[in-house]
Write a protein that binds this DNA or RNA. Structure first.
Lengths: 160, 160
DNA sequence: AGTAAAATCACCCGAAAGTATGAGCTTGAA
DNA sequence: TTCAAGCTCATACTTTCGGGTGATTTTACT
């Protein structure tokens, strides 16, 4: 880090205040030699110094406390669509009495595959898939594959 | 509000500091009468006052300034997963060359309705709906109604 | 070993979906 | 007026879907 080179820059304010302080003292010394001190009591002089330097101290403190308040950031990230990890609604699965294989078929159904394609995908016969789909429709109480998929998605049986 | 009754309580600190200030001045006056001032130069005395009251001012300022606002970064993830107002993706509609009627049929298709039901809903014949669906599948380059609905949803052609 | 649930497969039949082709009608723009 | 696009409808045909029934095999559990 370049601490040494930055020293005067970073302490610029402190140095400046020190100079002002010295200047003020010098000014008072000069005033003392003239007409002020001679004619007034010492208490007034001391009180003036106290007041002035109290004010200076307050001013210094207020100015020098630089990390006054770091900005409070209120973040409001708004996610419109959430594609987070799919969690199976096991309660509904159990309630409907759907088997694992039926859920599997349901998933492929949702992909828009035909029964024939599903059969090939699962290495079983077309008739098997037809039996599965029939059972699925029965358990879901729907008439068509489209409705089955819609219902399954809304019930969190298959990923959206 | 009970401003009057709370005055002394609220300004307790200020009053205390004022008393301390007076006490310090009195202490200095007492010291002056004794051995300090007599034997030392006035500059030293003034300097001491300046330093003490500068420190006092700083201390006052730090104490009196309201408690530093602590920096708190609050993260609030807000999930708006429900379907906000559906906006039609007109660009895609135009690109695919879909007519209004076809979009209408597509919407009903997504509800899981059969061709016959769609026909009754739109007061047209079954054959008309079959023509529409065929054209839709052609334009969307899909083979089945399920795939058409999936694609239409992902392209924002119909509400989710 | 016995049993119940799940998974597999087959056959039939009717309904629905999808393909292909042609055509009438309306409307808005060139 | 002509023309293109959109909407409508029809006929014919093929494919897929869905319902119903029955049967065998696998798996898991008692």
């Amino acid at each position: 880090m370049a601490n040494k080179t930055n020293f005067f820059i970073r302490n610029k304010n402190s140095i400046l205040y020190g100079l002002i302080l010295a200047l003020l003292l010098f000014l008072m010394k000069w005033l003392e030699l003239r007409y002020v001190v001679i004619n007034h009591s010492f208490e007034i002089y001391a009180g003036a110094i106290a007041i002035i330097f109290t004010a200076l101290g307050i001013w210094l403190a207020l100015k020098l406390t630089k990390p006054k308040t770091s900005t409070i950031v209120v973040e409001k990230p708004v996610f419109i669509q959430k594609e987070d990890a799919f969690v199976l609604n096991k309660k509904e699965v159990e309630r409907l009495g759907l088997s694992n294989r039926e859920l599997e078929v349901l998933t492929l159904l949702a992909e828009g595959l035909s029964n024939q394609e599903i059969a090939q995908r699962l290495f079983v016969s077309l008739n098997t898939i037809k039996t599965h789909t029939s059972n699925i429709f029965e358990k879901l109480a729907v008439k068509r594959r489209m409705q089955a998929v819609e219902l399954a998605k809304s019930l969190q049986l298959i990923p959206q």
